[in-house]
Nucleic acid binder design. Structure first.
Lengths: 207, 207
DNA sequence: CGTCTCCTTGATTGAAATCAACTTAGGTGG
DNA sequence: CCACCTAAGTTGATTTCAATCAAGGAGACG
């Protein structure tokens, strides 16, 4: 296991570099929450399983993002690799010790947590949409916003992942993509590569 | 305006005591996020408005709870008094200055933020439920969990508030309450006072 | 070439939204 | 005190949209 110090972390903050294969579990709900993770490459999903076995994906985490924050001693969500990915794991105790001595770092840590909070609230807004069309449109806009190219987006996740993120079925996701294509708002270059032809109108649907 | 130091805050942390009438806005989405609030009495709702005018309630905040955390300089949500309520407002800058000097306090602040995060994730889980029955059951269980008496709960909010919290309509909320009463899981002593007759089965519906 | 997994498409069903009317509870003022 | 008024809640009829059930297609990989 390699040990690294990332450029944007304070001197002395080191983490372990970890690799995960597609589908691998980073941590499970109920596991001891000993580390916080930063995505180096690839995409990770945070999810929970309801007692009927259904999965709800709370969020996707991509390059540079920090995830795995939890209030208690245990993770309330699971985290899984969407594709092959590389992460850095930072020991929570070590971070907290650092936060105690480095005033700036404690605020940075708070800031990361608040970014997670903002994402969670944004996800609630997505789920609050009444229509499948609104959910999918909002999802695509969200993907565009965290993509280098605003116009062509490459989805790292399957239709099932999207469905579980939006609390829809894969059939509805598929049909809604098709509908958007019919309306000339998007073009599906492949099933995973989407050309957003009219981001403004797409934002308008996000209602 | 009265100035107070609460028993559980570090020496020197003072806040302003504020009173709000039912329905009053504590802050609006887009306002400068200058303060963080703690509920002394009453209930506050955090909400956002979608571009079709619909309201989504992200959470209800009751006695002792801290709300108003935001990653950026502006609030992303609005906060409104559900009934008459009393809050303490803490200046964010002052808290951050304190966090920089007091190591313990910076972790306390982080902990409050992580509790907000946990609540937000829990709300996503609620919204992720496929059926109105599952949402209402989960909502009642949640209310029971933050109520003194686990069996009789007094709802501070209207049916419309509940509907906007669960992304349902008031009619569906009303009908589902009635259904639960028919199934002998609850009894509506008044429209706002609910007797949970079988919390275990209610938890089971939360699926 | 066969066998996965992922995705799409079609037919039907079902649950919640909508539209509409009515009831109840609270508050105010005559 | 009661009559009125309003906001909140309930109930019913109908429609609509997404879930479900079912089958087939496309791409990846050995």
């Amino acid at each position: 296991m390699q040990s690294v110090r990332t450029t944007d972390a304070p001197k002395g903050i080191v983490g372990a570099v970890l690799h995960y294969a597609s589908g691998a579990e980073v941590f499970g709900a109920g596991d001891a929450a000993e580390s916080i993770f930063k995505v180096v490459s690839g995409v990770v999903r945070s999810c929970s399983y309801q007692n009927d076995g259904r999965r709800l994906i709370h969020g996707f985490h991509a390059g540079g993002e920090v995830f795995g924050f939890d209030a208690g001693a245990r993770h309330s969500l699971s985290a899984e690799a969407v594709g092959d990915c590389t992460l850095i794991a930072y020991r929570r105790r070590r971070l907290e010790k650092f936060a105690a001595t480095d005033e700036g770092f404690s605020l940075r840590l708070l800031s990361y947590a608040l970014q997670s909070l903002a994402k969670a609230e944004s996800h609630s807004r997505l789920l609050g949409h009444r229509s499948a069309l609104g959910k999918i449109a909002a999802f695509l806009v969200e993907r565009a916003d965290c993509s280098a190219n605003r116009s062509i987006i490459d989805l790292a996740m399957t239709r099932q992942d999207i469905a579980d993120y939006l609390a829809l079925t894969i059939e509805t996701v598929s049909r809604t993509f098709h509908l958007l294509e019919t309306e000339n708002l998007i073009a599906l270059q492949t099933s995973r590569r989407v050309h957003l032809k009219d981001l403004a109108r797409l934002r308008g649907l996000d209602s």
